[in-house]
Nucleic acid binder design. Structure first.
Lengths: 114, 114
DNA sequence: CCGTATCCAAGGTGATACTG
DNA sequence: CAGTATCACCTTGGATACGG
C-alpha cells in the first residue's frame, strides 16, 4: 500500500484509513471476524485462495493497529480466537459503505478490465 | 493493489471500491477535483511530492472507471479540465467517512510504525 | 501546457515446507 | 491447530527525459 513515506502535509485521514482496509484481504477479514468467524482455521477455510501466511500478515497488522485482539486458549490442540476491539468495530461502517457502493457500481468499474 | 485476480466468490463490493480509492493518491485527487482544482497543473502544484507520471496514471484509471471525465480545450497552450462524473460524486461520502475515521484514529494506527 | 516511455526501487502477495 | 521462513513473482510508485 505504499503509504509509509507520505509527507506530513499529505498524511490525511485517508492514508490512515487505507492502512486498515487497504490490503487485499484486510476488509474481508474484518468482516469475517465481525460475523463470528473468529478462529484462524475458519478464516483459512473461507479464504482457500490465499495461503495462511498472507492471512497471518494481515492479522498481525490489524493487531498492531489495534483493530483486532486475540485470546489464546492454553492446551492442545491450540485454540486462538480473534475479536474486534472497539476501534475495530468503528471500522465496520466504512467497510459497509464501501461494500454497498461497490455492489452498486460494479458495472462501470469492473467492465473496463481489458 | 493486487485486486485483479480475485476469484468471483470473493470479488465483493470492497474490491470494487478499493479500485477507486485504493491507490496512493487516488482519493486525494478525487478530493482536489471536487474542490475545483481541475487542471493538471494545479494538481501537480498541490502534489509536488509526486511526479506528473504517477498523477496521470491515477487520472487515467479514474477516467477508465468512470469516476472523472475531462474537457480538452483546443488551442495553445493546452488546457484540460477534469470534473467528477455522477459516479464520481457518489464516491465523495466514502472518502469523507474514511478521512474522518482516520483523523479520529490517527494515534492507534500511526504510532506503532516501528 | 499536457501527456507518455523507459528504467528502476520497493512493497505486497503467493506456494511451499517447516517448527511448536 | 497456529504460526513462521524462505523463496520467487507481480504490481505499484518514482525519476528522468522526451514528444504533441
Amino acid at each position: 500500500m505504499y503509504l509509509k513515506k507520505i509527507p506530513d502535509e499529505h498524511d490525511c485521514g485517508i492514508s490512515v484509513a487505507l492502512k486498515i482496509v487497504g490490503g487485499k484481504w484486510k476488509a474481508w477479514i474484518i468482516n469475517c471476524i465481525s460475523k463470528g468467524m473468529i478462529r484462524p482455521s475458519q478464516l483459512h477455510r473461507e479464504l482457500t485462495v490465499t495461503s495462511p501466511r498472507v492471512i497471518n500478515i494481515h492479522l498481525r497488522e490489524l493487531e498492531k493497529y489495534g483493530i483486532i485482539d486475540k485470546i489464546v486458549h492454553p492446551g492442545l490442540p491450540l485454540k486462538v480466537e480473534y475479536f474486534l476491539t472497539e476501534t475495530g468495530k468503528s471500522v465496520l461502517p466504512i467497510i459497509d459503505i464501501m461494500e454497498r457502493w461497490g455492489d452498486n457500481h460494479r458495472q462501470p468499474v469492473n467492465e473496463p478490465d481489458n
